[in-house]
Amino acid sequence: MEPLTRIEGIAAPLMRPDIDTDIIIPSREITSPERTGFGEKLFAPWRYLDATRRENPDFVLNRTPFRHARILIAGDNFGCGSSREMAVWALHQFGIRCIVAPSFGAIFRTNCIRNALLPVELPEADVQALAAAAEAAPLHLVVDLERCEITGLAHRRLRFEMDAGERDCLIAGLDAIDLTWRHRAAIEAFQARDRQARPWIWEPR
């Protein structure tokens, strides 16, 4: 995974609450079992007017400067719904590296961490302030994962919280499976105990 320490770029406001993964990438757009090719499918129902992919000029990511956005400012419960990781791949492949929202769908949030896309939770008032600034004039933000802070909003420095383990993984770009195998002895010891304690789990016929 690519290491993630600092994200810099234009922030796009998309302040609807409860934006679900069916909107981020509808099922009918998932036509390949590969991990690539999802960027142009991001938000397809909102981004395009018809099947020929005529752009909807009103949709934020079709407007300048937002079509080059690196950061998305979103409403509450962003990424709720289906577990499809294609939602994260679509955002990432479009160019988004950080999403700021009051809260996230739980599976979506984990999928972000696993794909070097930073989910930042901030209080609703701060998210509103960022969105208002991004609407008013091009807003260039710097998200610093080491310091856990966002700068770029006039006279404000926004602090956010992040689990230390998740943060370390993102910063180092570590592979989670390799990290887990460092505990191979503990896994084997657990399994040896568990085969005694719950043998029925280990013999599903």
Binding site: R35, S83, R84, E85, V88, I107, T110, N111, R114, N115, D163, G165, A176, I177, T180, W181, I187, Q191
Partner: peptide, 21 residues
């Protein structure tokens, strides 16, 4: 029981474990 993404799924299949808060 809980839903996961594909990458966590790889982790689960490869190691029979997952990291959870």
């Amino acid at each position: 029981a809980w839903g996961i993404g594909s990458t966590e799924g790889e982790h689960a299949v490869a190691t029979q474990t997952l990291v959870r808060p």
